[in-house]
C-alpha cells in the first residue's frame, strides 16, 4: 500500500464520522428517555376529536386546517365523526384537556427536536397561572 499514512488517517476519519451516532449514544451518558405523556384524568375529557392514532400522526395537519378555517373563513365549530361538537381553538379545546404543555406537547417535541411555531402567538395557560 502506498501513502499508507494518509490512507489510514482517511479511513479512520471516515469510520469516526460514519459511526458518530453509535459512539455519541455511548458517550453522551444515559439512554434516551422515552416520552412520558400525561393524559387528562376527567371522564368527560377521555374522548378527543379524532382517534389517538390519528392525532399522534396528524395533529399538526388538523391544527393547521383549523387555523385556516377559523382565521380565513370565520367558522369556529368542528363536528367529530361521532357527531360531537367542539370549538376550533387550540388554547380552549386542545389545551383545555391537555392542560400541561410540558408533560404533553413537549414530551415528544423535545424528544424529536420539533419546534412548532404555535407558541410564537399562543400562550401556554399553565404558564399564565404560575405568574
Amino acid at each position: 500500500m502506498y501513502d499508507s499514512g494518509k490512507i489510514i488517517i482517511g479511513i479512520i476519519i471516515f469510520i469516526a464520522l460514519f459511526t458518530f451516532p453509535t459512539w455519541y449514544l455511548f458517550t453522551s451518558g444515559e439512554a434516551a428517555p422515552m416520552p412520558d405523556l400525561v393524559y387528562p384524568e376527567n371522564e368527560d375529557q377521555k374522548e378527543c376529536v379524532y382517534s389517538a392514532e390519528y392525532m399522534r400522526a396528524s395533529h399538526m395537519d388538523l391544527l393547521n386546517e383549523w387555523r385556516d378555517i377559523v382565521v380565513r373563513e370565520g367558522k369556529r365549530t368542528f363536528t367529530t365523526t361521532a357527531g360531537k361538537k367542539f370549538e376550533m381553538s387550540m388554547t380552549n379545546t386542545c389545551l383545555g384537556c391537555h392542560s400541561n404543555k410540558a408533560q404533553f406537547c413537549d414530551q415528544c417535541h423535545n424528544y424529536l427536536e420539533v419546534n412548532p411555531y404555535c407558541w410564537d402567538c399562543h400562550v401556554d395557560p399553565s404558564q399564565l397561572e404560575n405568574q
Binding site: 449514544l25 453522551s28 393547521n64 424528544y111 424529536l112 427536536e113 411555531y117
Partner: peptide, 26 residues
C-alpha cells in the same frame, strides 16, 4: 440525527431552522 442521537446535537435545530426558513405548510 434527530432520530439517531440523544441528546440531539446543536447542529440539528440549526439546520432545521435554516432548512425550514420559508415556513410553508405544516
Amino acid at each position: 440525527f434527530r432520530y439517531f442521537s440523544e441528546p440531539i446535537p446543536a447542529f440539528v435545530p440549526f439546520l432545521q431552522n435554516l432548512d425550514g426558513f420559508l415556513q410553508i405548510g405544516l
